[in-house]
Amino acid sequence: MDLQLFDDFSQIPESDSIKDKVPIFALPLYAEWIKKEKDYSTVWFYVKSEEIQLLIPFSIMKRGPFKKGMFLTAVLKLSGDCSIELEKDFLDRIIVWITEEKACDWIQQAPNWAIYRTYPENAVAVPFGSYIIDIELNSVEKLFNNIKTNTRGDIRKAQLIGINLVNGQSNIEDLFELIKNTAEKANISYPSLNQIRLMHEHFKKNIKSCIAYYKDMPQAGVIFYHTPFCIYAMYAGSVKNPARGSNSFLYWHTAIEKAKEEGIKKFDFVGAIINPGKESKDYQIQKFKESLGARLNQGYIWKYVISKEKYFVYNKYVKLVSLVQKRAKALDIIDRVLQDSR
């Protein structure tokens, strides 16, 4: 199998027919978004044989003397049965190409929706996963029955007490405040109000946002990206003590019931730490996902250093900036997991 590289999605063989077989993050629509927002340039690595057809998008951002790379998805199987060994070989060959071409200085952790079955030789990897609901293979009745009894009761209660679901774009300030307040408590990044507006303008029919209201007060809000392949929960927030069932009803109606009507195959909650402590916020969030019938898809996330010198200097620079700004240096999930395991 010859490794091929395309800087235009339309150059990929049978590109029109594979658009509905891949996540939104593998499409030009997303590549254009991260180009506008963060100046990432995207290419697509591709191999095809009589047995298999594989694809993975890769983006590079240049900042001063540094070039960092990032895979936008896990390895995408377009056709055939791909063994873990073949998948690893595909990744190893890409690493060789990136290294020889000096395409970037390091490859940072892929986004939380990219769960790998394997990883390249010499990568730094940790177990990671994501909670997923298979919409395509289940009827609406089966999907609802897969929800835990108490959560089904919460959804019915939300409908009885008058929880109102509203398009988030029409109340975008409320949506932003819900996401902002929740993210700040968790010490994670979040999009600005203007970025949320721009998201809706850019993704158009491939974005959904929804807010749950109780007595005209916002309770919870979520932004989803989607294609027929999958709907992804990208940003979410809620008030401290939301009205009973508001979160569950929002996810059930928008990301499961409506997604089923629209022919979407899967729902991905996006990202899950493996075996979080029972007292942790991560554990509580994962129990909520399980209560809606989601199952853990477990694999790996990883990163790869090509230029140790530049990677070292860059991290020292980031640490210095954090000290000047009097804030803690943010750790990626890989470093968090490794730190917690020590």
Rank of each mutant, 00 (worst) to 15 (best):
I179G: 01
G237M: 10
K319G: 06
L331T: 05
N145R: 15
G129K: 01
H200S: 14
D340H: 07
S10M: 10
L250N: 04
K260Q: 09
D268S: 07
P57R: 02
D216R: 05
D8G: 11
I274Y: 01
T118P: 03
E100R: 14
V47Y: 01
H226Y: 15
K289M: 06
I334V: 12
Y214D: 12
G80R: 07
M199V: 07
P23E: 13
R156E: 09
N241P: 05
K240H: 08
W302C: 05
P65W: 14
V140F: 08
I264K: 11
I56C: 00
L165H: 05
K240I: 01
Y40I: 10
Q109S: 05
D16K: 04
V324F: 14
V313L: 12
H200F: 09
D81F: 15
Y116W: 07
T227D: 01
G153L: 09
K316L: 11
S10Y: 02
K88T: 03
N171R: 14
K258M: 09
I172C: 08
T151G: 10
K157D: 09
G80I: 10
N181V: 04
F90C: 02
G271K: 01
F224E: 09
R295W: 15
Y314A: 08
Y317N: 08
I211G: 08
Q325N: 12
K266Y: 14
S341V: 04
K19V: 11
I301L: 03
L54R: 00
L137N: 14
D335W: 12
S307E: 10
F224T: 06
V124T: 12
L54Y: 00
G221N: 10
I334R: 03
M234N: 11
L137W: 15
I94S: 00
Y314E: 12
I60N: 02
A220W: 02
Y213C: 08
I115D: 00
L296S: 07
Y225N: 12
V124F: 06
Q325W: 14
L323S: 10
K310N: 06
M61R: 15
E309S: 07
K287S: 07
L193A: 08
D20S: 11
V313A: 10
I95R: 03
